[in-house]
Design a protein around this nucleic acid. Structure first.
Length: 880
RNA sequence: GGGCGUUUAGCUCAGCUGGGAGAGCGCCUGCCUUACAAGCAGGAUGUCACAGGUUCAAGUCCUGUAAUGCCCACCA
């Protein structure tokens, strides 16, 4: 029984069904196949805490590339997975526990982790199932999780290797501390926000004198940790004080006045208080001058025992109290309002504190270099290219990476401390005794690793590394990484240096950077704003295909995209157009298949086949260059404008006349072009194209997924193409005149095509049937003179001839003359323009020949039309 | 303080390596033409931010200016 398409396009009835059948048939499976070339994309793993939001819908780009390559015959692997997202997940679990009145300490590590895994089991699959709704053609059999067994093994392996190489070390350094999350965070996780604050000026009494040194600070509480006062060695004002001491009043600490060129004479008072434990610059100065480092803060941001009477106070409480106390002491000078940049933890928006802590770091210097080199050597390319600057800038200024986190959800650091001798043993498996003193009382480091430590290994850990295997050697290096510009630093850079270090090769050849999706007002999507449409709602209303289509259309790589509903709707309308075009074709189709190209193709058929062939070529090139938006625009225009609005309309008379000898040729062409359109569209809108394809082919099983159309040298019919374009122009001109003259659409008119050129006469002869329907004509007369044409007929000049439209109503001859005179003027201008151009020596000498020929051709064409138009003016004039 | 974008039709945006300005939506006119009113035919609208420069030729390349946005940065 012949299949049929439903009357209206309804995505809901097809998308889920098709996706399930794809899964069943394992279309997305990719395995080692030596006969094929692999094409691999590793999906940026979404957080298990996440829900599908519009941002994830940019995964469509990956799906388009994968489907395109799969159709081209590559062994296309799109490997999906999720990220444990240590801090983000842990915060959620802690919050959920808080509702039960529980804390991490109450539960203990094991119980906490049990809960965390339960959480993962419950929510970790959510985002994955939502991606399926979007149509993602991943090889789900290969789905990985950053904390699954294999990936955890990779993490330990890398940690141990780097430790043994001396590139992972433990050290006491200034780190970014989040007092809310009570963990360190990396530099990349600190956002800088300009905040309104105050610049408080205080003075310290100089010991042994009655003089003071006035300085300013934005964080008065750090005075508790001051261990020096610094001035510039060349500052005449303060030279005399260098070497003396001041006393920090509130803690009665005597500290030296030191000279350091870091201090800017011009800025503030030229005097800087030095707090090595709580400021990066001060820390450096502290090291240079061998200053004591006094940590005054506890992990929650409150003052600790070094803060004397302020112990236990929150940092901001302490600040207030200290200011008040300085006022009492008469050592407060003034308060200036100031906006300054403050470090904020991007997750919780709490002001971070620089603190000294004993942490694990990755030494970056040696690893950064190869990651820079691969760009310079052109082995790794970033699209659009401008993002390479971001990438390089970050790597060139990189600092050691703090990788230890005071969290439980994550990969626990494989370092074991001997309780007896303090020796550190780093090992993938827990050692039973200390390597140095043989003690068996060993304690594993409590901390876990930065979540990006594991995702940095994603391109190879997901393929089974560190175990050598076929998958790894076949699919690695991967081909394209597609991700947003917001995680170049976090992730892209780290994958590159990890790949270079562990695999000795780049993790991917191309990085395609996509923009961020914004809401309808152009704002960034954010959880707190709750803005942005819910993709599931969009899919529910318009279908995944429409959503995919709308996100890709009219977007250039790397540019942000503003979501808007009307765009989704017009995408859906386009899909509906394809749907209905198919219905029309099927309505007319006969049961027997036309296997081979018929030999009675008409000019019209050859014209559309030529156009289609061109589109195939261009679209393929565009997609290969990651120009997805340009490509889809071309398919859109070709489908709607050329195919539906012109070709189908042109072909209708042939279809309606069962006796027409070229009916089969029309049907063949309709189907051939339709199928190619479906294929070109398939990567973008996989569901509906598949549904249509199966219906048209009357099949249950697709072959569409496996074959991308190829450019065919045999499908270039230049003469026919020119012929049809000429007729199209004529039809357009007739419609135009009809509109201008307010001729009702239902009104059929006679058309006289007058030309002494036999070729043109033949062209219109061949086109007669559809010119009638397209131009609303009762009869088309093709003749070499104006015999029988009413004097009052409206005329249209075409290259090589004139078309007359005798309307029943009397034409206003004055107006007609005016109209035709305007045409005359137009042609004269065109000719003048082209002649000027050709008279330009420089142009003739340097412009490409094709362009010169084109201009010459124009002159000929317009001269002809000019002559015709003049004749018409004359004719009307004498008639008048 | 550096770096990178953006500025094109009323709105949202395309425009690849320089060779006569485009789409969608909106707007105006007219059509329920037996695939589609989620449609058809026709139409209007742009000193391509500004100023210089290179070139036979600039929305496209160079320099500068202005507006706007983002990223990076230890000036207390």
């Amino acid at each position: 029984m012949k299949k049929e398409l439903a009357k209206t396009y309804d995505p809901k009835s097809i998308e889920e069904r098709l996706y399930n059948s794809w899964l069943e048939k394992k279309y997305f499976r990719a395995t080692v196949n030596k006969d094929k070339t692999p094409y691999t994309i590793m999906m940026p793993p979404p957080n298990i805490t996440g829900q599908l939001h519009l941002g994830h819908c940019m995964y469509t780009i990956q799906d388009i590339m994968i489907r395109f390559k799969r159709m081209q015959g590559f062994e296309a692997l799109w490997l999906p997975g999720t990220d444990h997202a240590s801090i983000s997940t842990e915060v959620r679990i802690v919050n959920a526990m808080a509702k039960e009145g529980l804390t991490k300490a109450d539960l203990g590590r094991d119980e906490f982790l049990r809960r965390a895994w339960a959480w993962k089991d419950e929510y970790g699959g959510r985002i994955v199932s939502q991606l399926k709704k979007l149509g993602a053609s991943c090889d789900w059999d290969r789905e990985r999780f950053t904390m699954d067994e294999g990936l955890s093994d990779a993490v330990l392996e890398v940690f141990v290797r780097l430790y043994e190489k001396g590139w992972i070390y433990r050290g006491e350094k200034l780190i970014n501390w989040c007092p809310h999350c009570k963990t360190t965070i990396s530099d990349a996780e600190v956002d800088h926000e300009d905040k309104n604050g105050a610049f408080w000026h205080f003075k310290y009494p100089i010991d042994g004198t009655d003089e003071f040194l006035t300085f300013a600070t934005t964080r008065p509480e750090t005075m508790l940790g001051d261990t020096a006062i610094a001035v510039n060695p060349d500052d005449e004002r303060y030279k005399k004080f260098i070497g003396k001491t001041v006393t920090v009043p509130i803690v009665k600490r005597e500290i030296p006045i030191i000279a350091d060129s870091y201090v800017d004479i011009e800025f503030g008072t030229g005097v800087v208080k030095i707090t090595p434990a709580h400021d990066p610059n001060d820390f450096e100065i502290g090291i240079r001058h061998n200053l004591p480092i006094i940590n005054i803060m506890d992990d929650d941001g409150s003052m600790n025992e070094n803060a004397a009477t302020y112990k236990g106070l929150d940092r901001y409480e302490a600040r207030k109290k200290i200011i008040a106390e300085f006022k009492d002491l008469g050592l407060f000078v003034k308060e200036e309002p100031i906006t300054h940049s403050v470090g904020i933890h991007e997750r919780c928006n709490i002001v971070i504190e620089p603190l000294i802590k004993l942490q694990w770091f990755v030494k970056m210097e040696d690893m950064a270099k190869p990651a820079i080199d691969v760009i310079n050597q052109g082995k790794l390319r970033i699209y659009p290219e401008r993002f390479t600057k971001n990438y390089m800038g970050w790597l060139e200024n990189i600092r050691d990476w703090c990788i230890s986190r005071q969290l439980w959800w994550g990969h626990r650091i494989p370092a074991y401390y001997c309780e007896d001798c303090g020796e550190i043993t780093v090992s993938k498996t827990a050692p039973d005794k200390c390597a140095k003193c043989k003690s068996t009382t060993l304690r594993q480091d409590e901390d876990t690793l930065d979540t990006w430590f594991s995702s940095a290994l994603w391109p190879f850990s997901t393929l089974g590394w560190p175990n050598d295997n076929e998958d790894l050697s076949y699919f690695y290096p991967t081909d394209t990484l597609v991700t947003g510009y917001d995680i170049i630093f976090f992730w892209v850079v780290r994958m590159v240096f990890s790949g270079m270090e562990q695999m000795g090769d780049i993790p991917f050849k191309d990085v395609l950077i996509n923009g961020l999706i914004r809401d309808e007002q152009g704002r960034k999507l954010s959880k707190s704003l709750g803005n942005g449409a819910d993709p599931l709602e969009v899919i529910d209303k318009y279908g995944a295909d429409a959503l995919r289509f709308c996100l890709i259309t009219g977007n250039a790589p790397g540019n942000d995209i503003r979501f808007n509903w009307t765009k989704v709707e017009s995408s859906r309308n386009f899909i509906n157009k394809v749907w209905n075009a198919t219905r029309f074709i099927m309505m007319n189709m006969t049961d027997e298949e036309i296997e081979n190209t018929p030999d009675n193709l008409t000019a019209t058929d050859k014209w559309i086949l030529t156009k289609m062939n061109e589109i195939v070529k261009e679209v393929t090139a565009n997609i290969e260059a990651y120009e997805l938006g340009i490509a889809v625009q071309k398919i859109y225009d070709f489908t709607w404008d050329e195919f539906c609005d012109w070709y189908i309309e042109m072909v209708k008379p042939r279809l309606y006349n069962k006796e027409d000898k070229t009916r089969d040729a029309a049907l063949y062409t309709l189907k051939a072009v339709l199928i190619n359109i479906l294929k070109l569209l398939h990567p973008y809108i996989p569901f509906v194209t598949e549904e249509i394809f199966l219906t048209v082919q009357n099949k249950e099983e697709t072959i569409m997924l496996s074959r991308w159309p190829r450019y065919d040298d045999g499908l270039r019919f230049e003469a026919e193409t020119n012929e049809i374009e000429l007729v199209k122009d004529a039809v357009k001109a007739i419609r135009n005149i009809r509109g201008e003259m307010n001729v009702p659409p239902a009104k059929k008119v006679k058309i006289f095509v007058v030309s002494s050129d036999e070729k043109i006469a033949q062209s219109f002869k061949r086109a007669e049937s559809y010119v009638k329907t397209l131009a609303g004509s009762s009869e088309v007369f093709i003749q070499s003179d104006t015999a029988g044409i009413d004097d009052g007929a409206v005329s249209i000049v075409i290259p090589g001839g004139t078309i007359y439209l005798p309307f029943d109503e009397l034409v206003d001859v004055e107006k007609e003359i005016l109209r035709l005179s305007a045409e005359v003027k137009k042609y004269e201008n065109e000719i003048e323009r082209a002649e000027k151009k050709l008279a330009n020596e420089g142009f003739v000498k340097k412009a490409p020949q094709a362009l010169i020929d084109e201009e010459k051709g124009k002159i000929e064409k317009y001269k002809e039309m000019l002559r015709g138009a003049k004749e018409q003016v004359e004719r009307l004039g004498t008639h008048h």
